[in-house]
């Protein structure tokens, strides 16, 4: 990995964030014929409309509004919530931390299940176990998250009735209770993600199994377990990093649904509340935070991939 490559990758990330800025601003503030009307609804009094216009600077030309907005956004100031009157950014970041807890737990569990399962399916290629896991994985990919989540919530609350079905407790307040609240949502998200990662792991393992170095390792007389762990798993895992990074984007979308179903006050739910109450600054902050999180994850995944994969030279 060369410095020039790293620099270019970072520039690309900054460009991505810039484009996202323009889009979010355009869609939420510039595009509506009158953002103040959108905010306050049709029955607003002219005085209230004028006040909101002044507060948002809606009478300025669009480019000036955009510059003001970006300048504030860069310093982490997305304005105050129309609903609560509190600054938006801190609230959204707290919500994000709750979502990240859910996301990290789900990703860890997903990898723990999906990696061995994908390898297992590949080693049994064409047999009943492989076909069964493939069909289940196909189903998993073909079901929208809200269906999987709702049906799983139905099943899991029947199987594990002692677990709280909805709600959230901060791990700082009561770690044990917090963990219990996280079990069902984490299980649900993992079931959805396992399908993706497992399919990828299976096809990668199949490729690696046919490679020369695996044949060489076997011919050297290495025990099968060493071959599988040291040679097959290591190399098959590499492309899985990319799919996991892509899944973070999927996760960010899916989390909106999951948090809605399990009543977790994370970034997804905060965004949904902002959208239903037309809380413009909250919508902007939520969307920006989600998109930037995704851009950072993608960049990180690329860098990790480049660090691990010494076969390819980046220049």
């Amino acid at each position: 990995m060369s410095l020039a490559w790293l620099l270019r990758r970072l520039l690309l990330m900054i460009y991505t964030v810039a484009v996202v800025c323009v889009l979010v601003f355009a869609i939420t503030q510039a595009l509506p014929a009158d953002a103040a009307q959108t905010l306050l609804g049709e029955n607003a009094s002219p005085e209230a409309l004028a006040a909101v216009r002044a507060r948002l600077g809606l009478d300025d030309p669009v480019w000036l509004q955009f510059i003001h907005w970006v300048r504030h956004a860069v310093s982490g100031n997305f304005g105050v919530s129309m609903r609560t009157g509190l600054p938006v950014a801190p609230e959204m970041l707290t919500a994000l931390s709750r979502s990240l807890l859910l996301a990290a737990g789900s990703l860890a569990l997903t990898l723990l299940i999906a990696v061995p399962l994908g390898m297992f399916a590949a080693l049994r290629q064409g047999r009943v176990a492989d076909t069964a896991t493939s069909v289940i994985a196909y189903l998993g990919v073909s079901l929208p998250e809200f269906v999987t989540a709702t049906v799983l919530a139905l099943l899991l609350t029947d199987v594990l009735p002692w677990l709280p079905a909805t709600g959230y407790v901060s791990p700082l307040e009561d770690p044990a209770l917090a963990l219990r609240h996280l079990v069902l949502p984490v299980l649900t998200v993992s079931v959805i993600l396992v399908a993706h990662v497992m399919r990828m792991m299976r096809s990668e393992t199949l490729d690696v199994l046919q490679s020369d170095y695996v044949r060489a390792a076997r011919l050297k007389g290495l025990p099968e377990r060493t071959v599988l762990v040291r040679h097959v798993m290591r190399n098959a895992l590499l492309p899985v990093i990319t799919i996991v990074a892509l899944d973070v984007g999927y996760l960010l979308g899916g989390i909106i649904v999951i948090e809605e179903i399990f009543a977790i006050p994370g970034i997804g739910r905060a965004l949904m509340i902002a959208i239903t109450t037309r809380d413009l600054p909250s919508i902007q902050a939520g969307a920006m935070i989600m998109a930037v999180t995704y851009a950072i994850t993608n960049t990180l995944a690329d860098v990790v991939y480049a660090l691990l994969d010494r076969r390819i030279r980046y220049d």
């Binding site: 460009y15 960010l252 979308g253 899916g254 965004l271 919508i283 969307a287």
Partner: peptide
């Protein structure tokens, strides 16, 4: 860069 916005998020923004 536009694709960096997850599909559901983009759709939600537009619907909002």
């Amino acid at each position: 860069a536009v694709m960096a916005i997850p599909g559901l998020l983009m759709a939600l923004l537009l619907v909002s």
